[in-house]
């Protein structure tokens, strides 16, 4: 279909007006969701936001915040999750819904779960259409929920990833994995990357920030 010049300017105006209405309708400050204390100074989840993570433990850590406050959370398309680890990070499994395989309905399923869950973790399929992204974004804006995408996603408010992970406790046949020190890197738009050194988990199973004075062990023994 070819657009007439007149129509195109009309469409442009309509789009502009819609954008203005959207901005008017949007509360200036979205409600903040509870964030796990270990991440609190690098990222703050807001309702309506989309966040990207690269690992399961980061997804669980983000879920743990609202979950510990009594909110419902959900996992979509996650067949391969270690739920014991999730519970260990503070996720309340009694208030967690899991849709292991949403197949081609993943957009509808995520949209439905956003209605009840404060945070939905989604593993998107390899190819995501722009239509699906904008549809979910529109749904999120009207709800008090955040979306955490574990995988690839075109637009997001912040991107979290782990780097420099180091597992401690295993040797050469002896010992066992006990703790991991790692860095959480948070990129928000074009701003500088923020980083936080974490024990994920520490020796006692708890997640906590690594303190400056802790000596960095370079070799696992």
């Amino acid at each position: 279909m070819t657009a007439q010049p007149l129509e195109s300017t009309t469409a442009h105006t309509v789009a502009m007006l819609r954008e203005r209405m959207r901005r008017l309708g949007e509360p200036t400050a979205r409600r903040e969701l509870a964030t796990h204390p270990a991440l609190a100074d690098v990222v703050r989840l807001r309702a309506g936001g989309t966040y990207r993570v690269d690992t399961a433990s980061l997804a669980f850590l983000l879920m743990a915040g609202p979950s510990r406050e009594g909110a419902w959370t959900a996992l979509v398309n996650t067949r391969d999750t270690g739920l014991e680890a999730a519970a260990g990070l503070g996720l309340d499994l009694d208030r967690t819904l899991v849709v292991p395989d949403a197949a081609e309905h993943w957009v509808e399923v995520t949209a439905a779960l956003v209605e009840v869950a404060a945070l939905v973790v989604l593993r998107p399929p390899p190819r995501v259409s722009a239509h699906a992204v904008s549809r979910l974004a529109a749904r999120l804006r009207t709800r008090e929920a955040a979306l955490v995408v574990w995988g690839e996603w075109p637009r997001c408010d912040a991107e979290l990833r782990l780097a420099g992970s180091q597992w401690l406790g295993a040797g050469h046949g002896e010992g066992r994995l006990r703790s991991r020190r790692t860095q959480v890197l948070v990129r928000r738009g074009a701003g500088p990357e923020r980083r936080r050194a974490l024990w994920l988990p520490g020796d006692d199973g708890e997640v906590r920030p690594e303190h400056e004075h802790e000596p960095r062990i370079l070799t696992a023994s």
């Binding site: 014991e84 519970a87 499994l93 967690t96 899991v98």
Partner: peptide
């Protein structure tokens, strides 16, 4: 709603 799309086993809760 989700079950209407995916069937009864489509929505599960985790139990340890």
């Amino acid at each position: 709603k989700v079950r209407a799309l995916l069937g009864h086993d489509g929505v599960v809760v985790p139990v340890l």
